[in-house]
Simulated scan of single mutants.
Amino acid sequence: MVGAFHGHAHNWKCQLDWHPMYIQGTGHTEGEGCEHIFSALNDLARGTCHASWFHRHQAIKEHFAFWNENKYEALTRFIRNHYKEAWEAVRTLSAELRIIKTTLQVTDEDFIRFHAEERAYFVSLKQPRAQDQLQRRYVEALDELEECKLQWNTAHEATNHSFTSIPIGDLITFSKTLTQACVRLDTTYLMLQNAQALAGQLQAQIGLEQPWKVDGEEYLQFKQDVLMGKYYCVLDELECLVVMRLFELSNLNMLGTGN
């Protein structure tokens, strides 16, 4: 089981298998017992990080001794409160569930089937063909190559113009400018060579006799796939962050406060 607090950071297929919301018998268990202990230790860390070895161990021992006594003392109240909470949830949610089942014309078996079908759908998803992945990577390599060509041309032009403003006879400035220009040219040329080598290697793996032209038909086709793939990745990250934020606000009883 993945803790409820961290579960929404996992992909949806993982949540269907391991999130406590989908595991029968977990009830309101959040699976974040360690996080509660770590949270209580935060205040203790402020003092122990500057304490001696003896006082550090003494403080930690006393902290957990008090922790155990405090939890044991509050155990009956904890069980009673959670029992009342669970009973109230069963009472109210059962009534709501009956209305939903009547409205949608579904049964308890349908919910189990929906969950199984959703899991089967994600299991059935496959990675794109290796050839398609190579072609998409080839498009990215062509974009990198064009960017390196632009940087190389910019560095070349900047080098030509950098010497025009140097006064005649100023050898120190000339030497310094020459060194900087050489470093910039060498760096951009090395990047250009690496980009050309990568594009050529991918071209050979794909089996192309001629390289694709930027803005050509094949390039534009897979360029769209690359952009959509990046777009979907951004959407997944955004959804993950939003759900995690909502879950944090829910735990803090701050939903609807505008935070």
Rank of each mutant, 00 (worst) to 15 (best):
R77Q: 15
Y219D: 03
C34W: 03
R137C: 11
H82M: 08
G25R: 04
T103N: 09
L255E: 06
R80Q: 10
T187D: 14
V139N: 09
V90H: 07
T103R: 10
T179I: 10
F38W: 04
E144D: 15
I79W: 08
G27N: 03
T177L: 08
C233N: 10
K101V: 02
E248F: 01
T102M: 12
D186G: 01
V90M: 11
Q58C: 06
H82E: 13
Q151T: 07
A195G: 00
F54E: 14
A4T: 03
T159D: 07
D143G: 02
E218N: 14
I206N: 05
A130F: 06
F78V: 02
Y72N: 08
N11V: 06
E147N: 08
D186A: 13
K84D: 15
A65P: 00
N194K: 13
A130E: 15
F54Q: 12
W212Y: 05
R129I: 02
S250T: 05
M228N: 03
E96T: 06
S175D: 10
E117D: 15
T102L: 14
S175C: 11
K223Q: 15
F247G: 01
Y189F: 12
Q24P: 00
R46M: 12
N194M: 12
F114G: 02
S124M: 07
L190M: 08
E35N: 06
D17P: 00
A141S: 14
P20C: 04
R46A: 09
C148E: 13
R136A: 03
D17N: 05
E32S: 01
G33T: 00
I23Q: 07
A120V: 00
V242G: 01
V90C: 13
C240D: 03
L44W: 06
L192M: 07
L134G: 04
L150C: 03
K71H: 13
